[in-house]
Structures are given as structure tokens and as C-alpha cells.
Design a binder for these strands. Structure first.
Lengths: 140, 140
DNA sequence: CCTTGACCTAGAGACGACTCTAGGACCTAC
DNA sequence: GTAGGTCCTAGAGTCGTCTCTAGGTCAAGG
């Protein structure tokens, strides 16, 4: 059982900094309370690493820490609050979908502009930079 | 010609706050210098609104203000620096693609978890919440 | 012993992108 | 002539998410 991990090891495994891990603990973002050894040092398990991996994924989807905390609390509470968890996750799912649509739009714009510049480099002319940009909005 | 817009009108049209617009001017994010009327008030044009719309789209794709400023500078400089503009936009294109992949991953996780909770509500059992989460990583 | 290195706490600092405040000018309408 | 509305500047404050500092404990190695 290598189920005894130091904060440094967890930092290495999760990509979070040691500082961030202590911060996360203060913020109540661990599903299980963090144990301590005789000297007061934090002792983590592989489960903690897994949980942090999950949190990191949620964070990467733009979920703010308070929402992650709310979710953590639901998990800590134990079984029976699935409806709330589902609600929370569905809300995040929506936010992710919205974000993805927004990114598509931005991507379209960027690629349109890249096309414009490619044309310009081939000697063609466009009278106004801003107009060139904006036409992507006007004819989507 | 309704080419004379006040800061309040621009705020309304772009969704940016009046404060943000003044901030953007200080930060050099306008392609053309902002004109003033006799009383020192800012006078904007539709072109400014279009430019801001473009900036907002870029910002929405996660481009930080300094990058938008660099881009603005290139545009202000005039024709001939397309290679640099292309480079800048390509870099952003890459960042957007990376973000989208990340969002896909997060979305997979969220949906997986939603499935788990749906099952749980139908009476099936899963021994450990964290394990349920993590399996999505282990068997993608 | 003394150093090194990993860890501890409480709290300050950084950074991005605004957002707001204080104090004031100007114009129009009552 | 004063109230209301929009605008101005300079600069302070906010929020989220860390990141770093100061000052200290503890264990192992030379």
C-alpha cells in the first residue's frame, strides 16, 4: 500500500502546486478531511489524487471554486442527494455547451481573418480592416 | 449620418460598461484614437462599435487584453504587417482548439457522472463516489 | 552539532479585468 | 435657478485564484 502521499508527491501527481493544495484544503475542496501524521503534516491517499483530478477537470470547464465546494459538500454529505448533484452538474453542462458555442464563433472569426490576411498577402486589397472583420458578423 | 455616438450609446450597443470603455481607451484598445467633442466628451463611430465587437469576440475566446492590444497596434500601424497578424491569430486559433478539446473532456466527465447518478437514483449501487468519478479517466 | 530539505501556519501580495468613488462640468427642462 | 441626466478624470477597490513570505518544526545525513 503506497496509500501514504505527502503534499509534495500529490502536487507532482496532480500538477497543482503545494500552495494550491493547502489553499484547497482551507477552501474545503477535499471530499474527505485531510489526515495528518504525528508531526502535523498532511497525509494524502490515491483517492485524494483522484478527487483532485476530478476537481481539476471541473475547474478546467470553468466551474468556479465555490461551485466545486458546493459539489464537494454534497459528496461529503453522503448518499441521497443525487437530485442536487445532478442539478449542479446539469448547470455546468449547460455552461460548457454555451462556452463551446462561443468558442466556435470566435474560431470562425479568427479563421475568417486569417483568410483575409492570406488574400492581402497575395496582393488583393480590402479597403478597411475593421470592415473586413465585421463582415464575418454580417454574413455568417 | 448617425456616426456620432456617445459613450453611453456605445456601452448599450456593445454590452461593455461605460467604465470598461474608458478603461479600454486608456489601455490602447481602440484601432482609431477616440475623438472628443467641444466639451471633452468622447465621440464614437459605428466603426468603433464594430471594432469593439471584434475585440469582444477575441476576448471571449480567452485572448488576454495585452494580446488584443498587440493586435490593435498592428492594425493601427497600417498595411504590411500581415505576417505578424497572422502569427498572432494562429497562436490564438491554437489556444481555442486546445480549449475546445479540454471542454470536450470535461463534458465527457460531467455526462458520465450524470449517468452514474441516474443509475444510483434507480437503486443500483456504486461503492465509492470517487471511484465512480475516476473510472472515466481510467477507461476513456 | 549543523545543514539540508520537506513540511507547517498566518497572512500579505500579485494579477487580470474590470468596477466604483469622489468631485466636478455641462446641458436641458421645469 | 435648480434638479436630473450624462459626461469627465484620477485613482482606489473588488473578485477570483492562486502565490509567496516570514518565521518555525522536524528528521536524516555528514
Amino acid at each position: 500500500m503506497s496509500e501514504q502521499l505527502s503534499i509534495g508527491q500529490v502536487a507532482e501527481r496532480t500538477g497543482l502546486s503545494v500552495h494550491a493544495l493547502r489553499f484547497y484544503e482551507r477552501e474545503g475542496l477535499f471530499a474527505n478531511p485531510v489526515r495528518r501524521d504525528a508531526g502535523g503534516r498532511r497525509v494524502f491517499s490515491e483517492d485524494d489524487v483522484d478527487w483532485l483530478t476530478l476537481c481539476t477537470l471541473l475547474r478546467a470547464s470553468g466551474m468556479p471554486l465555490p461551485a466545486v465546494r458546493r459539489y464537494t459538500e454534497l459528496v461529503r454529505e453522503g448518499d441521497g442527494n443525487w437530485r442536487q448533484r445532478i442539478e449542479l452538474l446539469r448547470a455546468q453542462e449547460q455552461r460548457v455547451l454555451t462556452q463551446m458555442q462561443q468558442l466556435e464563433k470566435s474560431l470562425d472569426l479568427i479563421r475568417f481573418k486569417l483568410g483575409v490576411y492570406a488574400d492581402l498577402m497575395n496582393g488583393e486589397t480590402v479597403d478597411n480592416d475593421v470592415m473586413a472583420d465585421v463582415s464575418v458578423n454580417k454574413q455568417p
